[in-house]
């Protein structure tokens, strides 16, 4: 395990075709939209869920890569390895030292706590783990169109409805949209002796892999065709960073091509990367 010694920022572009990337519970599960501008939104927690699912699928029960916030019923509920006891007196409220040990142990065992952090609540000391990885909301490049598709089903659910012929359902889809999300990796929150979570270089590689492949294993009737299209990583030379994040994000521009109205595929967009204005001390790594 090598400790992380560089700050990173990243820009991820992903698209959806005839699907719903992230439903809005307030709007009957229609795709999220910014009501004032019409741009589509995907929340940060939506992508974090997919990253967790990917890591859980790839790593399974590998020690050190367990996932704390699980979806559905875990398969390994009864399978557990014995861990070294830390020698705390049982029955006592956890001391500060105990909390710190527990925090360290949780970080070591759970990938998602090491990456995104977690709230460990105790009566006395609110042990809180801030993870190094921070994600924004994703926003579509252009305003999206929410399309409602009515579907029919040939059966009914309950017996007393048997005389009814069929039921009607609804799906909400976006014909096409390209989303952009920006994120941050703070080396200090990974390697700091007291605040750090021990998020390592290997963890970071797994994180990039998860960003690239997270949609490949998240197929469902609602999602349609989703894919990661581009992943640009900005690597700073130092752990505090060498340039402001917003200046780096502005180097990556995504524009609709002339005449592509409405856009219906990734080819209708042009991604331009301004390598000339890259500040010194920062390297741009196109991962995909």
């Amino acid at each position: 395990m090598t400790t992380l010694s560089n700050r990173y920022e990243f820009v991820l572009l992903y698209d959806v075709e005839n699907g719903n990337p992230n439903g809005d519970p307030d709007a009957g599960n229609m795709p999220r939209i910014d009501p004032e501008t019409g741009y589509g939104i995907v929340t940060d927690v939506c992508l974090k869920r997919k990253i967790r699912n990917y890591v859980e699928m790839i790593k399974g029960d590998t020690p050190g890569y367990r996932i704390y916030v699980k979806e559905g019923i875990p398969l390994n509920a009864n399978h557990r390895e014995a861990y070294l006891a830390v020698g705390l007196e049982p029955g006592k409220k956890a001391s500060v030292e105990g909390v710190n040990k527990a925090r360290e142990w949780m970080c070591k065992n759970f990938y998602d706590i090491r990456t995104f952090g977690a709230v460990l609540s105790v009566g006395d000391n609110c042990g809180q783990v801030r993870g190094p990885v921070q994600l924004n909301f994703s926003r579509s490049i252009d305003p999206i169109v929410q399309q409602e598709v009515t579907i029919t089903r040939l059966t009914v659910t309950r017996e007393e409805e048997a005389d009814k012929e069929r039921t009607i359902g609804r799906k909400h889809i976006i014909p096409y949209a390209l989303y952009r999300v920006e994120g941050y990796v703070s080396a200090k929150l990974a390697n700091d002796p007291t605040k750090g979570t021990g998020f390592s270089e290997e963890d970071l590689q797994l994180f990039w892999e998860a960003l690239i492949n997270m949609f490949e294993h998240d197929r469902s009737a609602a999602r349609g065709k989703m894919a990661t299209r581009r992943l640009f990583v900005f690597k700073h030379e130092s752990d505090l960073g060498n340039a402001p994040a917003h200046r780096l994000f502005e180097l990556i521009r995504v524009n609709k091509k002339e005449g592509a109205n409405p856009p219906r595929s990734f080819d209708d967009y042009e991604v331009s990367v301004n390598k000339d204005d890259l500040p010194s001390g920062v390297t741009l790594i196109p991962m995909l």
Binding site: A77, P90, G127
Partner: peptide, 18 residues
Amino acid sequence: ASVDNALQVMKGAQKPLY
């Protein structure tokens, strides 16, 4: 996440931890 729960599992208790 509960610290007490984590401490118990660290000592080898057969409890779910997620």
